[in-house]
């Protein structure tokens, strides 16, 4: 469902590439974790995958569509196959929960009534059926992230990309948001890629685990195996230090 084929990305003025010949695949319906420390290349991986940055070489495809080769209207069309959940929620502060979830449908040209019905249904699924007309400022962090998840699912994407989605939440809310993602994966069959520096998140939810360090993949395998016998210097360090928090 997600394929990275030899992806390299180097920023102007940097001596080493942010992503260095990265290749991996994620099967449809899986939950895959990408872990690494700050500066390892996680953010670049997300920015390339979402089309915010162009790759220098290699291809990224999502659901068979090579997103890294597209620009303009074709790229915008392809982006609707990918829902993104953000660390800081990134909700529109001047729109209600319902209007926020309607946003991706509006820009896709879906009729207003249809968009409203779909948004209502999604907010019901994430447990916010009674907060349709609340503005983000009146919602808790956990509730805002639920709106973010509903919004990410609005265009019925095949892939849900979760970018440090629990880092801004307390442990209780983190857990319930993670459980929601796992339930959505089971119920809707959406493929999930969780990018995080928190090993505990990956351990609780992921079938597969990829570890990146200095722009390269250093581990890639079933999550259980990778965590039981970490081979890379970086994962050993993460396992034995504070990143379990």
């Amino acid at each position: 469902m997600i394929t990275f084929d030899n992806v390299t990305k180097k920023y102007k003025g940097m001596s080493v590439p942010a992503l260095d010949r990265v290749s991996f695949t994620v099967d449809a319906g899986a939950i895959c974790g990408v872990v690494g420390l700050s500066g390892a290349g996680k953010s670049t991986l997300i920015r390339c995958m979402t089309g915010l940055e162009r790759v220098d070489s290699g291809t990224i495809s999502i659901g068979g569509v090579s997103i890294s080769a597209l620009t303009g209207a074709e790229l915008r069309q392809a982006q609707r196959n990918l829902g993104v959940v953000f660390q800081h929620f990134n909700l529109l502060s001047q729109r209600t929960a319902l209007q926020n979830v309607m946003f991706p449908l509006e820009v896709a040209g879906v009729a207003r009534n249809e968009a409203r019905d779909r948004a209502r249904e999604l907010l019901d699924i994430v447990g916010l059926g009674d907060k349709l007309n609340s503005y983000p400022s009146k919602l808790s962090g956990g509730q805002q992230q639920r709106v973010g998840i509903a919004r990410a699912l609005a265009t019925s994407p095949k892939v849900l990309l979760c970018d440090e989605f629990t880092s801004a939440l307390d442990p209780i809310n983190s857990k319930s948001i993670l459980e929601l993602i796992m339930r959505l994966n089971a119920d809707l069959g959406v493929t999930v890629l969780i990018v995080t520096h928190q090993l505990s998140i990956a351990e609780q939810s992921c079938d597969r685990l990829i570890v990146i360090d200095e722009g390269q993949i250093v581990e890639n395998g079933p999550a259980k195996d990778v965590l039981e016998s970490p081979k890379s210097r970086i994962l050993r360090a993460m396992v034995t230090t504070l990143t379990w928090s």
Partner: peptide
């Protein structure tokens, strides 16, 4: 976020 959601 809006750009990633396919907004022009």
């Amino acid at each position: 976020a809006a750009l990633v959601m396919g907004a022009s």
